[in-house]
């Protein structure tokens, strides 16, 4: 088995050899390591992307906006990912961002996962009809984990989610009530000795 450390080092070197700067290659190493840690096909797709990159042209995107179509050639998932990661603090205000025509979207997803950790919010991504939830870079869940990941996405929708509960108030209250059974009713004598008791707090 190849260790994650070997994966990170080799991806970093391979990315440099594929034409990226050392700094971007470091980012790519971290991202592919992350995908492999989550058992997602990072090495496979990066390999295919680098092979295709020799023959085909891919676009960079320096400034991300709400709608980001690439008319002629697909976006490079690495430079798009680095831009997304770098601009996440601004993008947080947009809530919903759309990209058209992105190559090897799973590579881009790894950068979005890291961005989720940076802003401390979950990010929901739709790659055409496939759904992915990025959970603060702690895990990546999707509804097509056992299917082949697409090599190109026509549309990627990125939704930056507000931090909200996953459960309703009733469910929470029920659980809280049960937890109260571990509390002990305090006697009057103990109440009188508690912090602040017996004093006026207007001193």
């Amino acid at each position: 088995m190849i260790s994650l450390s070997e994966i990170e080092t080799t991806v970093k070197r391979a990315s440099k050899a594929a034409g990226y700067s050392w700094g971007v290659s470091e980012e790519t190493g971290k991202c592919i390591r992350l995908l492999e840690l989550f058992s997602l096909p990072g090495i496979k797709h990066l390999n295919e992307y680098f092979n295709e990159k020799i023959k085909s042209k891919f676009e960079n995107l320096n400034r991300i906006s709400e709608n980001n179509p690439s008319i002629n050639n697909p976006y490079c998932p690495i430079s798009l990912g680095v831009s997304f990661l770098d601009q996440i603090n601004l993008l947080e205000n947009l809530k919903k961002i759309e990209f058209k025509n992105v190559a090897y979207p799973i590579i881009f997803i790894s950068f979005i996962s890291r961005s989720s950790e940076v802003i401390g919010k979950k990010i929901y991504v739709k790659i055409d009809e496939k759904k992915i939830l990025l959970n603060l870079n702690v895990n990546i869940s999707s509804n097509f984990i056992d299917q082949e990941f697409p090599k190109k996405a026509d549309t990627i929708q990125v939704n930056l989610l507000e931090n909200e509960d996953n459960f309703n108030k009733h469910e929470w209250n029920n659980l809280y009530k049960l937890s109260e059974n571990t509390f002990v009713e305090e006697s009057d004598r103990l109440k009188e000795g508690a912090a602040g008791a017996g004093l006026t707090d207007n001193d």
Binding site: Y20, S21, G23, V24, E26, R63, S83, D86
Partner: peptide, 17 residues
């Protein structure tokens, strides 16, 4: 911003870090 700077100067990213 550093993000804007890096979008034009990718070759310096490793030392910005």
């Amino acid at each position: 911003t550093v993000a804007e700077f890096l979008s034009l100067n990718s070759e310096l990213r490793h030392v910005v870090r």
